[in-house]
Structure formats: structure tokens, C-alpha cells
């Protein structure tokens, strides 16, 4: 390390001792809930999903079409007022085959998270998952289409799209 620092300080605890509560610890579990206003742009996006549509925005200055939509363009830093109905198809920009859940517990059946580049946008998209697909058949560039929840079950959430599935190319 350095001539001044041969033995760095710090006492490592053994994980077994901690879990068996052989070392003292104090537990705390926060009890809070949050309710977020969706905002103007995402509110409209979620309303669109409830109606079975993907909505983006176009900046009048740089002409870029993006999803998720926003009421300003972060490149031009100008207000955005043009709303665009987009198709529910696109390509896989990148994907993973995940054997772990949010808190890293193991999954027997993997989830396939992916960034979906939505057709008609300027290489823009959002995070979602792939379904009805064999992981080994997927590639960057694979065409996909949204599989929607039944209209009565849609509630204005990103999960109104259940997943994207591989789709045939239809120009």
C-alpha cells in the first residue's frame, strides 16, 4: 500500500455471525408510501397505454421524435407541443436474460428485460420485457410487437403492455 499504511483499519464481521445475531444490531423498517402525480407528459403517455396506444412527442426545433414523451426537449431546451401516435412495434435495441429478481433472489424462469426501440422514433424507446420467445433466438435488431392486457384490465400503467413478442417484419 504505502509505507505509512501497512495494516489498514477496519474490523470485518462474519456474515454468519451477523445473521445468527451473535453481534449486536438494531433493526428498523421504514413504513412509508408515496403517491406520485404522473406529470403532464407521462400522464398523457399512461392514458395512451390505457387506450392501447403508444404516444411520443416531436420537438419542433430538432425534429427528433421520442418516447417516453416530454414537454420539453433536453437537447434544444425548448417547449415541445407536438404529440405523435406511434405504432406498437419496434426492434430490440438491447436485451438480457435475467435469472435474478429485483432484490437478487433467484428465478427459475428467466425474465428478458429489453430496451425496445419504437418504430417511427429517432432511435428512442423504453424499458420493457420480452415474452413468447426462446432467449437463444433473440438478437439485437429482432422485430417485436406489443402484447396488450385486455382493455378492461388496463389501468394506465406501463404494465398495460404485458410484454413485447417477436413479430414478423411488415413494412
Amino acid at each position: 500500500m504505502s509505507k505509512h499504511l501497512q495494516k489498514p483499519p477496519g474490523v470485518p464481521l462474519r456474515e454468519e455471525d451477523f445473521e445468527a445475531q451473535r453481534v449486536l444490531s438494531v433493526m428498523y423498517r421504514p413504513k412509508m408510501r408515496y403517491s406520485w402525480a404522473t406529470g403532464v407528459a407521462i400522464g398523457r403517455f399512461l392514458k395512451g397505454l390505457r387506450a392501447g396506444k403508444i404516444i411520443g412527442t416531436q420537438c419542433a426545433h430538432c425534429r427528433r421524435i421520442v418516447v417516453p414523451p416530454r414537454v420539453f426537449c433536453e437537447w434544444c431546451f425548448r417547449p415541445v407541443n407536438d404529440w405523435v401516435d406511434l405504432p406498437d412495434t419496434g426492434i430490440i435495441n438491447t436485451f438480457s436474460v435475467s435469472y435474478i429478481s429485483t432484490d437478487t433472489t433467484k428465478l427459475k424462469t428467466p425474465i428478458i428485460p429489453a430496451v425496445i426501440e419504437i418504430d417511427g422514433t429517432t432511435h428512442a424507446g423504453f424499458l420493457h420485457v420480452i415474452g413468447e420467445a426462446k432467449p437463444e433466438t433473440l438478437k439485437i435488431g429482432t422485430r417485436v410487437k406489443a402484447v396488450w392486457a385486455e382493455s378492461t384490465k388496463r389501468r394506465g400503467s406501463i404494465t398495460d403492455i404485458r410484454y413485447f413478442k417477436p413479430a414478423e417484419w411488415k413494412p
Binding site: S96, P113, S157, I158
Partner: peptide
Amino acid sequence: MIERPLGPNLIWIFAL
């Protein structure tokens, strides 16, 4: 709004 409901974790975005 649109990512947390999908249950992501940090490993996902590294993998992507």
C-alpha cells in the same frame, strides 16, 4: 412511473 413497475435491478441495466 414507467420503469419501477417492471421490477428492474441494477444488474439488468449493466447487462443491457
